[in-house]
Design a protein around this nucleic acid. Sequence first.
DNA 1: AGCATAAACGATAAAAGTTATCGTTTGAGA
DNA 2: TCTCAAACGATAACTTTTATCGTTTATGCT
Lengths: 144, 144
Amino acid sequence: MPVKETRSFREVCRENGIAVTHQRQVLYEVMKSMDGHPSPEEVYARVKKKVPAISLATVYKNIHLFIESGVFQKVSMHHGSVRVEMNGEPHHHMVCSKCRKITDIGEKELGLVAKRSRLPGGFLVERYAVDAIGVCASCQKSSC
Amino acid sequence: MPVKETRSFREVCRENGIAVTHQRQVLYEVMKSMDGHPSPEEVYARVKKKVPAISLATVYKNIHLFIESGVFQKVSMHHGSVRVEMNGEPHHHMVCSKCRKITDIGEKELGLVAKRSRLPGGFLVERYAVDAIGVCASCQKSSC
DNA sequence: AGCATAAACGATAAAAGTTATCGTTTGAGA
DNA sequence: TCTCAAACGATAACTTTTATCGTTTATGCT
Ligand SMILES: [Mn+2]
Ligand SMILES: [Mn+2]
Ligand SMILES: [Zn+2]
Ligand SMILES: [Zn+2]
């Protein structure tokens, strides 16, 4: 069973043209075993137990690599510096995955339906925030 | 017309029990005039043209104050450090506004949105990311 | 298996974003 | 006008992320 896991990781690397290093492999397996939505520091703390000499920079570099390769994803497009919303009207956002531009869009234009105020686990909903993630018109034209 | 604006800002301050300082007032008016979703640094650059001696710390402190008072909002709950998603199944998130915990929820349990792949302005949608923002069961019990 | 080379690694400095500290200034109520 | 808590500016400190660079390692080719 570790054999199968190893083979599948090797295939992932082969597909994406990246080398199979010891650090990379342990990182991949540790991350796969983690629940929730850890930060790079949390991943670093975990993987350090198995590879004590690993560098935080290596963790960051490989998390980026995994995300670029589609092996894992980012929880949100909105990490980094805080952004302020001055538009008091309830609305949602279109987020361009190329240029990261955030554009307002009303609920009606979005075609949004069905709003539950209670969700499984007893979660009480105050509001919904929807991101339509894709490519803006300007980035579709320019082939960058 | 500047008189009316001033009065409304004074009322906002009165309602929230905060002092009407010169910096605060200019900051409020500059921010209200800004489109999009600026970062604190962008706000700072703008307000500095009108109050050159203002400190970046003052900008940060007042942005927080405005957000806490509900005058303005944050674009997203997900600023700060990047979080990695290892759950490959398509899903959305419940985000607790008290403890900030992020919990997975499937599309079916959520009640979901309509799926338009084209949005106004020629935006091409790749996927939707929905945050149900509210209070988790644990934070409902504890009255903190 | 041995070799060459590009990629990856670890250590750490630097950059970016944010918060804390502290002495000085100012707004609000008496 | 006077008093004092609140707010301000300057800047140090902290957090998160990226860049740099010398060393090590994986890979493809004999
Ligand atoms: Mn908006
Ligand atoms: Mn998730
Ligand atoms: Zn774009
Ligand atoms: Zn909570």
